[in-house]
Design a protein around this nucleic acid. Sequence first.
RNA 1: GCUGCCGUAGCUCAGUGGUAGAGCACCCCCUUGGUAAGGGGGAGGUCGUAAGUUCAAUCCUUACCGGCAGCACCA
Length: 671
Amino acid sequence: MPDPAGGAAAPSSAKTIALTFPDGARRDYPDNITGLDIAKGISPSLAKRTVAMALDGRLADLADPIEHDAKIEFVSREDPRALELIRHDAAHVLAEAVQSLFPGTQVTIGPVIENGFYYDFFRNEPFTPEDFSAIEKKMREIVARDRPFTKEVWSREQAKETFGKMGERFKLELIDAIPADQSIKIYKQGDWFDLCRGPHMTSVGKVGNAFKLMKVAGAYWRGDSNNPMLTRIYGTAFAKQDELDAYLKQIEQAEKRDHRKLGRELDLFHFQEEGPGVVFWHAKGWSLFQTIIAYMRRRLEGEYDEVNAPQMLDKSLWETSGHWGWYRENMFAAQSAGDEAEDKRWFAIKPMNCPGHVQIFKHGLKSYRDLPIRLAEFGMVHRYEPSGALHGLLRVRGFTQDDAHIFCTEDQLAEECLKINDLILSVYADFGFTDDIVIKLATRPEKRVGTDAMWDHAEGVLKTVLERIARQSGNRIKTGVNPGEGTFYGPKFEYVLRDAIGRDWQCGTTQVDFNLPERFGAFYIDAHGEKKQPVMVHRAICGSLERFTGILIEHHAGHFPLWLAPRQIVIATITSDADDYAREVLKAAKQLGLRADLDLRNEKINYKIREHSLAKVPVLLVVGRKEAETKAVSMRRLGSEKQTVMPLDAALGSLAAEAVPPDVKRVQAAA
RNA sequence: GCUGCCGUAGCUCAGUGGUAGAGCACCCCCUUGGUAAGGGGGAGGUCGUAAGUUCAAUCCUUACCGGCAGCACCA
């Protein structure tokens, strides 16, 4: 596409172009007329409130000459599409402010991101949040000055000379990276200017004052850890102050559901210094964790064989599998600790379950009639994750996978992938993730094993399967591709789900592996009595159960549905007169399999209500003398201030019915 | 791992170059109160670890450990 600014100097007069307006009107204009001229021609007020235009849906500078027939729309500052312009312009304002306050700081890039923008700077002394108020103040000055954004197209030489003289070595690198057929665009805002592909609004003042600098962080130049570390300043900007306020409030809400905070508050788990990245599960957290595993076990029944492979194995096995070569840096290994011990071999603590499962498959001759063989394991694996990657339950060094490996023939591969898909989607639905599930096909990475033919084949199968999944779901399931993101041994599907506040989590995965069976010499006997190599499919649904538990905590904000809640009911007495009856209620609840506790403390009911509400207990059964006399309970649900007095049996009966896990409910409904 | 910030009681946090405080939680006493904090009292800390500077370090310096944010990584 020719650069719109390219011909700005020489407007031709003979040609005309036809522009279509949002209301459908079509009008002819002289070639190279600018959006601004058109807007002015329509009405001065339109010109005044327009900050940019969209040509055939693509945002462009209002001052750009228009060279083609197009659909044209004028974008006001309030238009949702203007938000990215506001943010991008704010990034430029940030850069100018920083360079004016901290001379010698070099600029690099400053893109718009999901919730705002950032700008990466190079400076020996990094910025701190204490610098923010001064920078924001300077930014407000620059905005108030309201200089127009003007675009210039420079020659490569001019650009390199100018930025070279300024000592902007990162900009020089960027200029070199711009393809030869693209022009070098410079946006000026008063005296300050930046290399930028645009577009921008008409003037700096349009940024407004609803912006805020959020945080500083290091970031590698061009995202490569071999490159120098830059200082990144994150900010956000909105069209209006109340939108900014709402966004800040939303961040606060997200912080409240942080699983690390809730884990402490709800007494679910903890971490401590001696065990970086490994979880101490407390009773309530372990209950939740085990509820999830029990659920998964039920879902595997009849289809999978659950096995358990050793926690550590001689390193030679990992050399064979290839993990020692590929991932040694990220593995733990152990030896006998005694100085005098004779056996000083290295044992690798398993980072994956697959080599163990191959050993189980290999044990004894397998016939094609046995396939597919589906081996599942809730295996605890350990990986030496980089210290900076650790993050509560979401990234740990020791975790439990809901792992399985399927050994099948090539003919069975597609069918197996579809079966796995059905299971994954059904499990997600049971956990409350029904919409916005995305499946991505991750294709061959640069570092990989196996022949191209093998990869072609495996990717081909997955692609076909993925298309079928999308079709079957009536295109409810969205699909995509992650080029180069496959594992070293094969391509994979990544299942991404979206939580209650719109965050995406990659959980499930289906990975095709032609590599491990070959490395370990796994085979089966086919119908002609020949040895054949099985295809192996690695599959996880929740992925790391620790992580999945963390996601569930955040998804529900600790307010779990009854079937998951570690403590479903607390029976609280009003006075000690009701103690005996409360014990009766507890016994009856436990007989129905409900997880219930008693609160007989000598405290006022207000106090008890408050405490258990803060602990997010889903159901409070309050009993006093009245209830004891009538064999009733006063039920109060978490999040509600209403109480319902019900006969004991009816209350417990309905709670027990509600607490049945969703998969069991389905079975009950079918029966 | 990299950059920056942080580490004081179970939790949330205040504080000082002369070895520490608050609120909540905890324990004890009084209170038996009908749906989100009743009252009083008490106990609790080698101020992350180690070295250095200093007459003196929780406070200053360095290293290490751990955490937080982001980056990089994630079989």
